[in-house]
């Protein structure tokens, strides 16, 4: 690339824009469908499809264990996987602030390509806009994704039944703490890395195991607390979690103690919560553990009836008492009280 910074001209739609597209995106995302450069990607179909979209605006854009590009691909791959689909095609739309360094853009785009390759998805269409300095913060990415539904799966947050087992694929809070550790004004040093990862292979292993899967969700923003509360509300049940089975890395626990945060409300980007028929709990855990991202999968709780009709999430604390696990309200702010 002749230039070293993104200029407003790169978003103009003219020659300079084409150069940006050819020299960055087309070069890195080498896909035959994308290479056609049509307005929409035409893909083979005729099956039941899953379709999703998400925008990524993380700050800082590079963080321990990942970056905005990896996040943008994994997030959409995971959303498709959670519905029981096999992710196939992804779009990538960029909003870039003028002045953004090409060196960084390459890093982001290459990281997207690597994540897409690992997940076995093709980036088949895209868009780029460049905005004036100050109108965006470095780079925003939107990805949409299409996946082909696996036959004979019925996965939904409303499917939970009393007796079902609740399984998590590993530790919680890693992504949120990794990102926070690099934030201005909160600087603390820790070896913790974001768990950002594509989970399609892990989910495929779970479904292939033959386990009766009722619900799957990745506990991203709002953390495990939000996902479990969504489950409880949509199925009208009590989700009962035993804290002693929930894995929290020491550094995550330490950072949360220090900043007054609840690790249950801290974001994850490479974890799945599965609710399965109790009889298939061990089978599900074993299937998750075949994936490098599910080595620490474990059963953390069970679904119970809501006796008073009030769905909720309860947590048996390490000290042996029980409390409510509520959703995060508003922005997660460090507190000193």
């Amino acid at each position: 690339m002749a230039d070293d910074r993104v200029l407003l001209a790169h978003g103009s739609g003219g020659k300079v824009s084409h150069r940006l597209i050819d020299e960055v995106f087309m070069k890195v995302f080498t896909d035959p469908i994308l290479n056609r450069q049509d307005d929409a990607a035409v893909v083979p179909g005729g099956e039941k499809l899953a379709f999703t979209t998400d925008s990524y605006v993380v700050k800082p854009i590079f963080f321990p264990g990942g970056d905005i590009g990896k996040l943008a691909v994994c997030g959409t791959v995971n959303d498709l996987s959670m519905s029981g689909a096999v992710p196939k095609y992804i779009s990538a739309a960029f909003v870039i602030e003028e002045g953004f360094a090409f060196a960084e853009l390459y890093r982001v785009v290459e990281s997207m390509a690597a994540a897409a390759e690992e997940a076995g998805v093709a980036i088949v269409t895209g868009d780029t806009k460049v905005v004036e300095r100050g109108s965006a913060d470095q780079i925003f990415i939107n990805t949409a994704g299409v996946g082909i539904m696996r036959p004979d799966v019925d996965i939904a947050a409303s499917n939970l039944r009393p007796g079902d087992a609740v399984i998590i694929s590993g530790s919680i809070g890693d992504h949120g703490v990794a990102v926070m550790s690099t934030r201005e004004g909160l600087s603390f040093r820790t070896a913790i890395e974001s768990d950002c990862a594509p989970l399609n292979a892990l989910i495929a292993a779970v479904i292939d195991s033959g386990a009766e899967v009722h619900a799957l969700r990745d506990p991203t923003r709002g953390g495990l607390a939000s996902t479990l509360n969504e489950f409880a509300a949509q199925s009208g049940v009590v989700v009962a979690i035993d804290e002693k089975h929930v894995l929290i890395a020491d550094q995550v626990a330490g950072a949360c103690e220090m900043l007054g945060l609840d690790p249950y409300q801290v974001a994850n980007e490479g974890k799945v919560v599965a609710v399965v028929a109790a009889a298939d709990a061990e089978k599900t855990v074993a299937a998750m553990r075949t994936s490098p991202y599910g080595r620490e999968a474990r059963i953390v709780g069970a679904i119970a009836e809501a006796p008073d009709g009030k769905p909720r999430v309860t947590l048996k604390t390490t000290v042996g008492t029980t409390r409510i696990l509520d959703m995060l309200v508003g922005e997660q702010l460090p507190r000193i009280c």
């Binding site: 604390t317 000290v319 042996g320 008492t321 029980t322 409390r323």
Partner: peptide
């Protein structure tokens, strides 16, 4: 006290 469920314990 609330977070550890002590009020009820």
């Amino acid at each position: 006290i609330s977070k550890n469920g002590l009020r009820q314990a």
